[in-house]
Every structure is written in C-alpha cells, then in structure tokens.
Design a protein around this nucleic acid. Structure first.
Lengths: 206, 206
DNA sequence: ACCTGAACACCGTTCAAGT
DNA sequence: ACCTGAACACCGTTCAAGT
C-alpha cells in the first residue's frame, strides 16, 4: 500500500511484488519457463526470499489462479450491474467477457483449470473455492431469466455448466492454435464468440 | 515389430518403448512430474539414450499429442462407419466419444491443446497438422447432414468449431475438478455430455 | 548406429546463519 | 520477522567416449 522506494534489506511489499511480477512472467514465458529463482532474481531478491511468503511454487500458482477467478467475478458483477433486469443481455455479455479474459490471460486461465496440478482420476476430490463466486453469478443470471419467463430451461445449473463449457472450450481452441488454419482472421475469431452466445441463447430463450 | 526379449546393449525397440512408457507415465504422474531421466530409468536405459530417438523432451510430447489426435481420428472413423447415412446419430456419438477419450486421457488431451508449448500471443502462427484429420471428419458429418436436409445450419465449419469447443470445455471442467461441488456424482457427469449433445443438436437440426 | 558417463547450467526446497 | 548463502537432490541437454 505505502510502497514507494524502500529498497533496503527488508523489502516491505515482497508478497505483492512476487505475485504481480509472477503473473507477468507467467503470461510472458509460460508456466514451464517460470521459475521461482528467475522470479526472485527479476525482483532483485535472493532465490530463497519467496519462501517467506509462499509455502512453495504451487502456493504462488494457486494465488495467481485464485486472482483469475476474482478478476472474472469482478467483470461479471460489472456487467450484471450495467444491464439490470436484462438477463438476456447479461448472459450474452458474460460469455463475451469470459472469452476476452481467457484469451488475454491464457496461462492464468490454464492455471485456473488445473494447469499446474496433476489431474486426478477422481475429480470429485478437488474442490475449488475461489471459482464458486463467478460461477454462481452466471447461475443467478440464468435463474433470473427463468423467473422472468425469458428462458425456457428447467435446470439452471446444467445450463450454466453447458454455457461455461462452451466458452471455455472456445477460448482454448483459440489460444492453443487449433483453429490456425480454420479460422484465420481475428475478425472471424471474434465472430465465433458472438455466434456461440447466439446459439446458446437460441437453445435457452423462450 | 520383431521385439521379443533382446535386452542386451542394443535395445532394439527403444523408440516405441519410450513412447508408450512415456504416455503411461504422463497420465500417471502429470506433465510436471514426467522427466526424461525418470522415464529412461524406468525403461532401464541411460538417461541419455532417449536423445538418439527424440530431439528433446518437446519432441516426445509432440509425438504423444499427435497420437492422441490419431486415436481420436480412429474412434471417429469407427463411429461414422457404424452408423452410415445417419448424420444425427454420428454427430451425437462423435461428441460422446470425444468426451470419453478426453476424460480418460486428460494429460494427453492437455498436450494436444498446447499444454507443453508456451501459448503464443499470435495464435495464427501455430499450425497443428495432426489435428486436421479428426476435425475434418466432424465437418464431413455436418456437411453430410446439411446435404441430406437434416441440419439447418449455413456454415458447417463454424458449427464444427462450436461443437468441438463445447465438448472440449466440458471435458476440462470435469477433469479439472471445477464441477466438484456442482455435479457430484459420475452419473450426473455422464448425463451432462448427453444433455450437451442434445442441446447442440437442438440448435442444428432442421 | 546406438548407448554410456561425465559435465554444465539450471531447477525446487531445506537449513543454518546473518540483519 | 525477514532475508541470505551453502547445500541437496533433482532436471534437460551436450559432448566425448565406448560397443
């Protein structure tokens, strides 16, 4: 908070600096090229200092992933407030915002969905607290649309899962380069998000 | 091919053994815990022998990712042949098969979509040859359904992208544990795949 | 041609020590 | 409490050498 230029022995704001420089380095270099040692050196601190603030590398990664969900929640809230009493518009904009954030921060998005953790055979054993808020906002919008008689779905949860899946999958297809030879212009790619939200709404709207 | 028990100095089938043991280790331990050294030791060969067969670690990962796409293509072909002249059934089964494979081999799937490669800002510059065949099969099915007047879509490519995105996203949501507290039983999870294909068909069918 | 062993420049993590 | 330096057990990769 106070952080001006206190560059003596005690750093002062090392936690936050590790976090933000970590997130930058992550998006620049990818998860495989981000090392705690490199990060520490970039900040100008010994390779061991981070351990006073994060238990291990996984803890830093988790913190970054959590912040991704928080960013998402903030973006969702902003949209919901911008279009009050308009679930259709809210639903559409939520999808596009998700896509935008995921494409802008592909490595963070990867982390949010287990990019660092080993995938367990038993997925039922992996909770993910920080992701609940953003997901719940989507569910709320859908339930609201249902209550207003705008959506003809019977299961808002299922509907939210399907919508989230679609947007997430599209973001990955785009950032992975899978669509390289298929949708070659960025304009086409932007259109894909809109078409997908339209198609989802088509299956949802009354 | 001849590979019986030739366990002297020259290994004989090291390439294939590296590949298959590598794929097993990958799915068991996750990408971050798979090391070439560990792999070499498992097979019983010096930590350096792999370099005679794979240029580097990335080459092995690429080979595994490619095999994932080949497996997918094989599964797709089998389905298409099983339900000839029935694009609707084909479309449905393709989706479910994709989901099944992705959930069974989450780490390989991750690799197929850039899990090892750093995500480039310019996605337009990342070709992915081996993925074309499987994707094209899906496009073919959709075009076939279109020609038969069963599907009311105007752009088969766009439709294929949307369908692929949805299934891929759902697979990731499942294997990442994101749905942990949301869809808690495997039965519900299996249903999600079916519901998603139904919804997609709803937006597609004439 | 195929494999090994030593070597190099990196990792994450721990531990005793400094301020 | 916060940071440093040495140390340990790992990595990927290269190079000279062995079969």
């Amino acid at each position: 908070m106070a952080g001006k230029t206190k560059k003596s022995y005690h750093h002062g704001d090392l936690y936050n600096e590790l976090f933000s420089a970590g997130k930058s380095l992550l998006e620049e270099s990818g998860i495989h090229n981000l090392s705690l040692r490199n990060l520490a050196q970039t900040i100008g601190v010994s390779h061991n200092a981070p351990y006073r603030h994060f238990k291990d590398k996984a803890a830093l990664m988790t913190a970054i992933a959590d912040s991704g969900f928080e960013e998402l929640t903030a973006a969702f809230l902003k949209i919901i407030k911008k279009y009050p009493d308009n679930p259709i518009k809210q639903f559409k904009e939520l999808g596009l915002a998700y896509l935008k954030l995921a494409i802008q921060n592909p490595e963070t998005t990867d982390l949010m969905f287990g990019g660092f953790t080993k995938k367990e055979k038993d997925w039922l054993a992996q909770p993910n607290q920080s992701s609940h808020a953003s997901f719940q906002l989507l569910v709320d919008v859908i339930e609201n649309g249902q209550a207003k008689g705008l959506f003809k779905i019977e299961n808002p949860l299922e509907c939210a899962i399907v919508a989230w899946s679609s947007m997430h999958g599209l973001a990955i297809l785009i950032t992975s380069g899978f669509l390289h030879d298929i949708a070659t212009s960025r304009i086409q790619i932007k259109k894909l998000g809109e078409r997908l939200t339209e198609l989802l709404l088509l299956g949802i709207q009354a």
